[in-house]
Simulated scan of single mutants.
Amino acid sequence: MKWLPRGYGGERRSPECVKREGWREQGLLAVTIDDQRLTWVERELVKQLGEKLYGKRPLLKEVR
């Protein structure tokens, strides 16, 4: 049984593709603090911008 009519299925875009198109088309930037393509200074800048705009992230509790 098919859920969609033929020709409407398409392919799912990768998260990197969605981020790239969001930046190019709408000026949106989605960056993870752990992105290894960034230097330490760049990661700190991203962290500081996130905290300024949205507040500090909650601390993760260690599960034992």
Score class of each variant (00 low, 15 high):
Gly9Ala: 10
Glu51Phe: 04
Leu4Phe: 08
Asp34Cys: 14
Arg20Asp: 03
Leu45Asp: 15
Thr39Phe: 04
Leu28Ser: 06
Glu42Ser: 07
Arg24Lys: 14
Lys47Thr: 05
Lys61Asn: 14
Arg13Met: 08
Trp3Asp: 11
Gln48Pro: 00
Glu44Met: 11
Leu38Lys: 05
Leu53Ile: 14
Lys52Pro: 02
Ile33Glu: 12
Glu16Thr: 07
Asp34Glu: 14
Leu59Phe: 07
Val18Gly: 00
Arg12Leu: 11
Lys52Cys: 10
Pro15Tyr: 13
Gly9Asp: 08
Val31His: 03
Gly22Trp: 07
Arg43Gly: 01
Met1Trp: 12
Tyr8Glu: 12
Gln48Leu: 10
Leu53Gln: 13
Glu25His: 04
Arg64Ile: 01
Gly10Thr: 00
Gly9Tyr: 03
Gly9Ile: 04
Gly7Met: 03
Gly10Trp: 01
Arg43Glu: 00
Arg24Asn: 02
Gly27Pro: 02
Leu4Cys: 08
Lys56Cys: 01
Lys47Gln: 13
Lys61Val: 15
Leu49Val: 14
Gly50Asp: 02
Gly22Ala: 12
Glu21Phe: 00
Arg20Trp: 06
Lys47Tyr: 11
Arg37Lys: 15
Val63Ser: 09
Val63Arg: 11
Pro15Glu: 02
Glu42Trp: 05
Arg57Trp: 15
Tyr54Val: 05
Met1Arg: 08
Glu42Thr: 04
Tyr8Arg: 11
Leu28Cys: 04
Val63Phe: 05
Pro15Cys: 04
Val46Ile: 14
Pro58Val: 11
Glu25Met: 05
Gln48Ile: 09
Tyr8Gly: 00
Ser14Glu: 13
Lys61His: 13
Leu59Asp: 11
Arg12Phe: 04
Lys19Ser: 03
Pro15Lys: 13
Val41Cys: 01
Glu21Ala: 06
Thr32Glu: 10
Met1Gly: 15
Leu49Asn: 12
Val46Phe: 09
Arg13Leu: 13
Ile33His: 08
Val46Leu: 12
Arg20Ile: 01
Asp34Gly: 12
Thr32Ala: 13
Leu53Ala: 12
Gln36Phe: 06
Tyr54Gly: 02
Pro5His: 06
Leu29Met: 09
Thr32Phe: 08
Glu25Trp: 04
Glu21Tyr: 02
Glu44Ser: 05
Tyr54Ser: 10
Lys19Ile: 03
Arg6Gln: 05
Trp3His: 15
Asp35Ser: 14
Lys56Phe: 03
Ser14Asn: 01
Trp40Gln: 12
Ala30Met: 14
Asp34Thr: 14
Arg12Asp: 05
Lys2Met: 11
Leu38Trp: 06
Pro58Phe: 06
Arg20Gln: 06
Asp34Leu: 10
Val41Leu: 05
Gln48Thr: 09
Gly7Pro: 00
Glu51Asn: 12
Lys2Tyr: 08
Arg12Asn: 02
Val31Gln: 10
Asp34Tyr: 11
Leu4Lys: 11
Pro58Met: 12
Glu51Ala: 03
Glu62Asp: 15
Asp34His: 14
Asp35Phe: 11
Pro15Leu: 09
Gly27Leu: 07
Arg64Trp: 08
Trp23Asn: 05
Glu11Gln: 04
Arg57Lys: 15
Lys56Thr: 07
Arg37Asn: 07
Arg12Ile: 11
Trp40Tyr: 09
Tyr54Arg: 06
Glu16Asn: 15
Leu60Glu: 13
Arg43Gln: 04
Gln48Asn: 08
Glu44Val: 07
Glu11Val: 07
Asp34Gln: 15
Arg24Phe: 06
